[in-house]
C-alpha cells in the first residue's frame, strides 16, 4: 500500500518537473509527429515497391511499427528514465550519489525501477495505439475479445523482458563504471521497427534469444494477426521469468559488491 502511494508521488513529481519547460512541449510534439511520419513514410516507400516483405503485408508491418512505438513509449515513460538515473551517463553509480539511495528505507530494486517518470511518452502511447488500431482495421481478420486478451498478455511479457534486460544492463555499471551499455539497448530495439523474420537467419536468432526483440515487438504483433503459436507465448513467458530472475539476482549481487561485501 505504501509502495503504491509512493508510485503516485513519483508520477506527480514528474508532472511538476515537466512544467519547468514550456518550449519542450512544442519540441516533443514535433518530435512525436516526425517519428510517426518517418515510421509510416518508411513503410509506405517500402511497399510502393513491393507488396510483400518476406510474407508480411503492409498492414501487418504497420502493426509491428505500432507495437514497436508502444513498447518504446512505455519504456520511455518509466523504465528508461529510472534506470538511466541509476546506471546511465552521469547516473548515481557514476556520481556516487547511490550512497544516498542505498540508505533509503525501502526495497532498493523497487525504488530504482520506478522513481523517475517522464510525462511525454503518454502522448506517444496514444499515437502508437492509433497506429495499431489503424493497422488492425486494414487487416482482414476481425478482432475478438480473446485476441485482445492474448495481446495484453503478450505485451506484459514484452515489457517484463524489456525491463529485465534494462535492469541487467544497468547493473553492469556497478562492475564496470563508465561503460554506458544502457545506450546499446535503445539502438538494438530499433531492429523491432520491422518484423524480425525479415532479417537474415543469424541476425534473427540473436534477436530472438540474446536480445529478444522478437518476443518484445514481433510476437505481440503476431498475436494481433492471430498468427502466433501458443508455444511462442509460452517460450517468451519462460524467457521473461529467467531473465527477470537473473536481473534481480545480478542487481542484488551488485548491491553487495557496492557495499564491499564481496570482491
Amino acid at each position: 500500500m505504501r509502495y503504491l502511494r509512493l508510485l503516485g508521488t513519483f508520477i506527480r513529481a514528474a508532472i511538476q518537473n515537466e512544467s519547468a519547460y514550456r518550449l519542450n512541449a512544442v519540441m516533443r510534439l514535433l518530435s512525436t509527429g516526425l517519428s510517426l511520419a518517418g515510421g509510416i513514410g518508411g513503410i509506405a516507400v517500402l511497399f510502393q515497391a513491393t507488396d510483400n516483405l518476406n510474407g508480411w503485408s503492409k498492414a501487418e508491418t504497420l502493426a509491428v511499427l505500432g507495437v514497436y512505438m508502444l513498447v518504446l513509449a512505455v519504456n520511455g515513460l518509466v523504465i528508461s528514465p529510472s534506470l538511466h538515473k541509476l546506471g546511465g551517463m552521469g547516473g548515481e553509480i557514476e556520481t556516487g550519489n547511490f550512497d544516498y539511495t542505498l540508505l533509503k528505507p525501502l526495497s532498493k530494486q523497487y525504488y530504482i525501477s520506478v522513481r523517475e517518470w517522464s510525462v511525454w511518452p503518454l502522448l506517444d502511447i496514444a499515437v502508437s495505439l492509433g497506429v495499431i488500431g489503424f493497422a488492425v482495421s486494414q487487416m482482414e481478420a476481425s478482432l475478438t475479445a480473446a485476441v485482445l486478451g492474448m495481446f495484453l498478455v503478450s505485451l506484459v511479457i514484452a515489457l517484463g523482458l524489456l525491463y529485465s534486460l534494462m535492469l541487467l544492463l544497468s547493473s553492469v555499471a556497478f562492475w564496470y563504471r563508465g561503460t554506458y551499455v544502457l545506450w546499446i539497448m535503445g539502438d538494438v530495439l530499433q531492429t523491432g521497427k520491422y518484423p524480425v523474420s525479415i532479417y537474415p537467419r543469424p541476425v534473427k536468432l540473436v534477436l530472438t534469444w540474446v536480445f529478444p526483440v522478437g518476443f518484445i515487438v514481433s510476437t505481440p504483433a503476431e498475436v494481433l494477426m492471430q498468427r502466433a503459436e501458443p508455444v511462442t507465448l509460452a517460450a517468451g513467458f519462460l524467457l521473461m521469468l529467467v531473465l527477470f530472475a537473473a536481473a534481480s539476482l545480478l542487481f542484488n549481487r551488485s548491491l553487495r559488491k557496492y557495499a564491499g561485501a564481496s570482491s
Partner: peptide
C-alpha cells in the same frame, strides 16, 4: 549504436 539504424534499413531493403 550509430551504425544500427542504417544496418536495419540495409537488411530491410535487401530483403
Amino acid at each position: 549504436g550509430w551504425m544500427t539504424a542504417p544496418v536495419i534499413y540495409l537488411l530491410v531493403w535487401q530483403a
